[in-house]
């Protein structure tokens, strides 16, 4: 098992490298001159030329790529933002935790609500509970996040004065943003859970459990849900990955300086350093997320655990 984890961690290095090269190349061939954006329209030709030279924009692609890769991966020098001059390392160190926290809370709320909805729908297939749950899921997917965000702010901040409308601080600042962004996740979780559970509920071991006299809710959760978790975990994983990158709208509305805004602003300003390094961090964060998903599989399903441990540990005795 430890070998499996180690192997996956090592794999992150080529992934990060690959993302770095890909993003770097894309930014290179994007039209738009960073020097002009930094210096503004009052700059003279000389100013611009000097700036371009300083940023190394005149060097050939290979040299620039090489410099970037060696700076980032060998010296761990993440550089400064071309536009603001702020240290990228500092900025990411501050912003990534906020985005992560927001995404994690969203994930917990989404699946905390989505999984029970899906279970209820599956257990009462085709009855009114099923239709209600799926209707709720549909509403969840259809609601635009920014609309919901503003509604929540009006209700909880302006009218009820319970939660802050924007900004960062303690955990209460993340509740409304998480609620506004979680509706997609609820829908995804509910649908996948329902589908998974429908499969599982027809299984023979469910009948065995009932025949043992296990109470019905235990049959559903302990015997049923636990077996149906694998596809649900997969959906959670990909959803989390999407959220890491996609919280930009929520971050803007709630004035949370996070990774989403950081990178999008970087793209708009052709701030190469920010976009490149930011993308690498997101890629690594996503890789960890996928690793967590795979480890969760192992935690839930002993057959997968055995597969990971294969080739190293002594084989389990067969009858």
């Amino acid at each position: 098992m430890a070998r499996y984890v180690l192997k996956r961690l090592l794999w992150m290095i080529p992934i990060a490298l690959g993302v770095a090269v890909l993003v770097f190349t894309l930014m290179c061939f994007c039209p738009g001159d960073p020097a002009e954006i930094i210096l503004g329209s009052t700059a003279t030709q000389e100013n611009l030329a000097a700036k371009r030279e300083e940023l190394g924009l005149n060097d050939p692609y290979i040299i620039r790529l090489g410099t970037f890769l060696s700076d980032t991966f060998i010296h761990f020098d993440l550089g400064e933002s071309w536009i603001t001059g702020a240290s990228v390392k500092e900025a990411i160190a501050e912003r990534l935790p906020r985005t992560l926290l927001l995404s994690i809370i969203q994930l917990i709320i989404s699946f905390g609500i989505g999984i029970p909805l899906g279970v209820m729908a599956a257990v009462n297939q085709n009855k009114w509970q099923d239709n209600l749950c799926m209707a709720l899921a549909l509403i969840g997917i259809s609601i635009p996040n920014f609309w919901l965000a503003l509604l929540l702010v009006i209700l909880f901040s302006v009218k009820l004065n319970l939660l802050p409308a924007m900004g960062i601080g303690g955990i209460e600042y993340y509740i409304l943003p998480a609620l506004a962004g979680c509706t997609n996740g609820i829908a995804a979780g509910a649908r996948q859970t329902r589908s998974s559970m429908l499969d599982v509920i027809r299984s023979d071991y469910i009948t065995t459990a009932r025949a043992k006299g296990v109470p019905e809710w235990q049959v559903i959760v302990k015997h049923g849900l636990k077996n149906g978790l694998i596809p649900i975990i997969t959906v959670m994983g990909t959803h989390f990955g999407k959220m890491l990158g996609g919280t930009m709208v929520i971050e803007t509305i709630f004035a949370i300086p996070g990774m989403g805004q950081y990178i999008i602003n970087g793209v708009n300003n052709r701030d190469y350093q920010v976009v490149q390094v930011g993308s690498i961090f997101l890629a690594i964060a996503f890789s960890f997320c996928m690793l967590a998903v795979d480890l969760l599989y192992a935690a839930v399903d002993p057959r997968i655990r055995a597969r990971y441990a294969k080739g190293g540990k002594r084989r389990a005795k067969k009858a």
Binding site: S157, V158, A165, M166, G167, I253, A255
Partner: peptide, 18 residues
């Protein structure tokens, strides 16, 4: 000084005395 980019949130911030 608080940075609030979203226009409607700006209005809300004033209303709620943020």
């Amino acid at each position: 000084f608080h940075l609030i980019k979203e226009a409607s949130q700006a209005g809300i911030a004033l209303e709620t005395k943020t």
